[in-house]
């Protein structure tokens, strides 16, 4: 009984995957480019998934539009720009460097520099202390 239940569950889940539509290009190079590109575009409806991973209706639409734009001969960057013009920079996982994002992009470098200063200061202070003070 239990085995039969397990079997039917497995078979049912198979149906779902078999019926998923093929989306992509016949040409392997184009298809690879497509797969890579859709991983860099955010699904606005589900935010923490790319349109490649999301099953939502808007992600399906955006994938279809991506294929159409690729067929029209647009480059990856032109396609990302096309979506950013409509949905805003948030749709791209790598937002462009501009007045509202410079702090975001430069924060890691700024923090390293700040950390370096603090580190240098601590070292300098320690150097001025007598060497054998801590040895006890």
């Amino acid at each position: 009984m239990r085995l039969r239940l397990l079997l039917s569950t497995v078979l049912l889940s198979l149906c779902c995957t078999v019926h998923a539509q093929f989306e992509g290009f016949e040409d392997p190079a184009l298809d690879a480019r497509y797969r890579e590109l859709i991983h860099t575009i955010r699904c606005m409806q589900c935010q923490n998934q790319s349109i490649a991973d999301s099953p939502s209706a808007t992600a399906v639409d955006l994938r279809r539009q991506t294929r159409e734009l690729m067929t029209d001969g647009l480059s990856d960057n032109e396609i990302r720009l096309y979506f950013a013009e409509r949905y805003g920079d948030f749709i791209n996982y790598q937002p462009p460097f501009k007045p509202t994002t410079w702090l975001l992009w430069s924060a890691p470098a700024l923090l390293v520099i700040l950390g370096g200063f603090i580190f240098a200061r601590i070292i300098r202070v320690r150097m001025q202390q007598p060497m054998d003070e801590d040895l006890s």
Partner: peptide, 13 residues
């Protein structure tokens, strides 16, 4: 029906 104009307007919900 297709959602094409929705894309032009940045509609996602």
């Amino acid at each position: 029906y297709s959602g094409d104009i929705g894309i032009d307007y940045g509609v996602y919900g």
